[in-house]
Amino acid sequence: MYKLYGSPGSGSASVEAALAEVGAHYSVTRVNTGEGKHLTEDYRAINPRQQVPALELPDGTVMAEGSAMMQHLADAFPESRLAPLPGSSARAQHDRWLIFMAVNMYEGELRKAYPGRYSSDPEGAQAVQASADAYVKRHYEILEQTIGTGPYLFGDAMTMADIYLWMLASWMDQEWLANHCPNVFRLASVVRARPRLQTIHEAHFG
Rank of each mutant, 00 (worst) to 15 (best):
V31W: 11
G34N: 11
K37N: 13
T40G: 09
D42F: 04
D42A: 15
Y43Q: 06
A45G: 02
A45F: 02
R49Y: 04
V52S: 01
P53T: 04
P53M: 07
A54P: 06
E56N: 05
D59K: 13
T61N: 11
T61A: 15
V62Q: 05
A64K: 04
E65N: 06
G66T: 03
M69G: 04
M69T: 02
Q71R: 13
H72P: 02
L73H: 11
A74H: 07
A76E: 13
A76V: 12
P78Y: 13
S80Q: 08
R81S: 12
L82A: 09
P84T: 08
P84C: 10
P86F: 13
G87S: 14
S89W: 05
A90Y: 02
A92D: 01
A92W: 11
Q93E: 14
D95E: 12
D95H: 13
W97L: 12
F100A: 02
F100N: 02
A102P: 01
V103S: 12
V103C: 13
N104Q: 11
M105P: 02
E109H: 06
K112D: 00
Y114K: 06
P115V: 07
Y118W: 12
E123D: 14
G124N: 08
G124M: 10
A125F: 01
Q126D: 13
Q126P: 00
V128K: 05
V128Q: 04
S131H: 10
A132M: 06
D133F: 02
R138W: 01
Y140F: 15
I142K: 10
L143M: 11
I147P: 04
G148Y: 02
P151H: 11
Y152P: 05
F154A: 11
D156Q: 13
M158I: 13
T159S: 14
M160P: 04
M160D: 03
A161Y: 01
Y164G: 01
W166V: 00
M167E: 04
L168K: 03
M172Y: 01
D173G: 05
D173E: 14
D173F: 05
W176H: 06
N179A: 15
